[in-house]
């Protein structure tokens, strides 16, 4: 019984921030003159109301689930991999690079190569941050931010330079890929069942490897206290590198999906802020892999549903982003409070 009471109190501690966030969101909505109930309803119907909306929501979910699973690894190792946004972008760049080399290729050959190459790209880009951190003593947050800027600039350069369309460089992106290299989707819908399966697979693998492997255990040790772990014989540097490589590969996978499922070309803001959303998701999950899938679904729903706010209620759809931000802030704040309470 004590176990379940303990669980109840933990659950209420997890739910309290959600309720506070909800309350603040309602106050915000009232303040901006939006009907709160209607707003939430429209967010919901806008993301789950029709089969095509559900499909679009799951398209976003795939990206958020995979990237947050990858980030869970770096967070477990105590690393703030802010560079994840650039790692997604480099994944998309590598995917496009591969696609350009296989323009005439069939999908069965082309798509796996594109995906793998994108994962290699994302991993390499992440390793740059790790190497700078380990051997150059550059804080990963600064390194990551720097590499994000470089990835964006390089992407723009490619789109307006070597990879521009025949008719000239445009912000709408590179030439559209031949349809053979598009990831197959359900008829009339934009969602790819294969991608959903891959995302679930990634979630399970990450969950299991954190729970049941030596690697996962050692990552946790690094995350708790890297010096102590080192002294106790944990090979910290190789582990750190592997954590970044895994996260980067996940980001690269997302980058590939964004190119071959969503846009069918490389576009300037291809990473779509999903890396940063992924960070928020992991923070909200209290580093628990089980929470990643539902939280990713929530964030995906808000992203897709918020266009409905404008269409249906004439509310600026950036409100969706504000709600997400409020939620994360409140939850982090509550976690801080919780820790203070516990430490007393």
């Amino acid at each position: 019984m004590t176990g379940s009471r303990n669980f109840l109190s933990r659950l209420s501690l997890s739910l309290a921030p959600l309720l506070v966030a909800l309350l603040i969101a309602i106050l915000l909505l009232v303040a901006t003159g939006a009907p709160p109930l209607d707003t939430f309803a429209k967010l919901f119907t806008g993301s789950f109301g029709t089969s095509s909306k559900q499909a679009d929501t799951f398209v976003v979910w795939v990206s958020l689930a995979i990237v947050s699973a990858g980030l869970l690894i770096t967070f477990t190792a105590g690393q703030w991999n802010i560079g994840v946004e650039g790692q997604i972008m480099v994944g998309s760049i590598f995917a496009t690079w591969a696609a350009r080399g296989m323009w005439e290729q069939s999908g069965i050959v082309g798509i796996p190569v594109i995906i793998l190459w994108a994962m290699v790209g994302g991993a390499l880009w992440a390793l740059l941050v790790a190497v700078l951190k380990i051997y150059g003593k550059v804080n990963e947050i600064f390194g990551g931010l720097g590499f994000n800027f470089i990835a964006t600039a390089f992407n723009i350069y490619l789109i307006f330079g070597p990879w521009k369309q025949k008719t000239g460089g445009t912000l709408s992106g590179t030439e559209i890929f031949p349809e053979a290299l598009w990831m197959p989707t359900l008829p009339e819908l934009r969602v790819s069942p294969i991608a959903i399966i891959i995302a679930l697979f990634v979630l399970v693998v990450i969950y299991l490897s954190l729970r049941g492997t030596l690697w996962g255990l050692q990552l946790k040790a690094i995350g708790k206290n890297i010096r102590a772990a080192f002294v106790l014989g944990v090979p910290t540097n190789p582990l750190m590198l592997s954590a970044y490589a895994v996260c980067g590969a996940c980001a690269g996978l997302v980058g590939a999906f964004l190119v071959i499922i969503v846009h069918h070309r490389l576009i300037p803001s291809i990473s779509s802020g999903y890396g940063f959303l992924g960070i928020l998701i992991v923070l909200l999950s209290s580093f628990n892999a089980l929470w990643l899938a539902p939280l990713a679904l929530f964030f995906a729903a808000v992203s897709i549903g918020s266009t409905a706010l404008q269409l249906e209620l004439n509310i600026d759809s950036s409100l969706g982003g504000v709600l997400q931000g409020v939620l994360v802030l409140v939850v982090l704040l509550m976690q801080g409070i919780k820790e203070k309470v516990i430490s007393k």
Binding site: D56, V60, L171, R190, I267, S269, S271, S272, Y274
Partner: peptide, 17 residues
């Protein structure tokens, strides 16, 4: 546009309209 609505495509918006 990609800056204001990342990930939103003309196809999606057309479905809505």
């Amino acid at each position: 546009n990609p800056a204001d609505r990342p990930g939103v495509t003309i196809e999606q918006v057309s479905d809505d309209l």
